[in-house]
Nucleic acid binder design. Structure first.
Lengths: 236, 236
DNA sequence: GGCATTCTTCGTGAAATGTCGAAATGGGAT
DNA sequence: ATCCCATTTCGACATTTCACGAAGAATGCC
């Protein structure tokens, strides 16, 4: 739950700029929020300083997604090189202290990903349910801490921006608690992945619970770190 | 806390599209997420259907912020006209049930707004602290419900994307509780507005508490509904 | 299978973007 | 007041976008 902040911030910045009546002003606001002089930004972007000025002054009324993205990314990179002072400031507001003990990783895909491809990447086998589905994102959750630390209203946060996702519960013993939690909660994911367990060790109630909410259940014994880096490394 | 969802969703969509390697695909994903056929979208945008196709196929590698914004807005408008089915689905995931009892409104400005202008719009007078400041957003909070319902980690959510904001606490009796809550909490707003109270009724401890965290405190007796609509109606 | 409807591909022209570099502007320091 | 620095303004030009409409590909419905 560290690198997620950068992406989330980038999306917020890009969204705000894109929707603004004057993208230039919004661009300027963010550059200033990060205390970056126009010259420095221009240098990092390898463009002349006048380019920055032109955008911020609004000479180009509707800049393309490419430069907006490049500028946002560059602003964040400059801050990272300076120790990530402003990024961390945002991170502190956005995430509570406990977040990184509960949500290890959360990501939204820009286009649908088929469950079978997904399963292959994380080395998971099917326990029950159909593999003929697509997901829009995933969340890697520490099962124990989620149950211990999240209030019922906070529990929803594991769904990010879409319930059409895979919830990967780590280090489960029998997998019963996560499935029960989902059973009694209003939102249902497309898929649940039980990590650190073999199909044989899974609690016998699980297929029944999954069936009720039409959830596909997978198992994987690949360790958490590997799963996270595989998912981050795979660009769909 | 109703109309906020639309804006937040719009920003997420725009941000994702803008940062995507293929904005066209991202655009398509969102149109499909809302179950809107290309033809319908084209008609509402008053452009030929081929335009949609061209964007989604990626013929324009870097569409301008203007059309991205227009398309996002149109997708949301079409859904609203259909009863807001998909918007509501996102709203349910994003907000817990209690949110609308606690946070009446939350907004981020794309450019800084001076405190004195802000105070004028909500009909507030200065109690203590400097008016020579700028804010980047505001939150209107039901004081009682916030104290009763929010956990300490959830409390941070009132800050939205920036602490450089005004927190408007509604229907306070003496204003002491909100100021105490802020005192013991790690983040500090630029400004606190106590609603439903005159300067004379404010608890005597407040200027001292505010001084410690360099917070400007304002009072207003304008009613909550009026404040919210004034703020929404004022485009800075 | 055939026909209607919808969607995609593609050539095209007007308008706008993306970038530069020269010139003008605006603060600080000296 | 003057010099130096960083920033803004602006003309120029190659490259793209934006939108259209015609023609080709899909899709679905008798």
């Amino acid at each position: 739950m560290k690198s997620g902040v950068r992406h989330q911030l980038a999306e917020k910045m890009a969204g705000e700029i894109t929707l603004s009546d004057s993208p230039g002003q919004a661009l300027k606001k963010w550059r200033q929020s990060f205390n970056i002089p126009p010259g420095v930004l221009a240098e990092r972007l390898e463009v002349s300083p006048s380019v920055i000025s032109d955008y911020e002054s609004g000479r180009r009324k509707s800049p393309g997604t490419a430069i907006v993205g490049k500028i946002v990314d560059t602003i964040l990179s400059i801050d990272e090189d300076n120790g990530g002072r402003y990024i961390n400031k945002f991170a502190k507001i956005l995430y509570s202290e406990f977040d990184e003990d509960v949500i290890y990783d959360i990501h939204e895909y820009a286009s649908p990903v088929s469950l079978s491809e997904f399963a292959e990447v994380i080395g998971a086998v099917t326990l029950c349910g159909s593999m003929d589905q697509a997901i829009y994102g995933y969340t890697v959750i520490n099962s124990l801490n989620a149950i211990l630390q999240l209030s019922s209203s906070e529990f929803n946060r594991i769904y990010g921006w879409s319930t059409e996702r895979a919830l990967i519960f780590t280090e489960v013993s029998t997998g019963k608690s996560p499935m029960v939690a989902i059973r009694v909660t209003p939102f249902k994911p497309r898929c649940v992945v039980l990590q650190g367990i073999s199909p044989g060790e899974v609690h016998p109630l699980i297929p029944g619970l999954a069936e009720r909410d039409r959830i596909t259940v997978l198992c994987t014994e690949v360790d958490v770190e590997t799963i996270i880096s595989s998912l981050r490394g795979t660009l769909w």
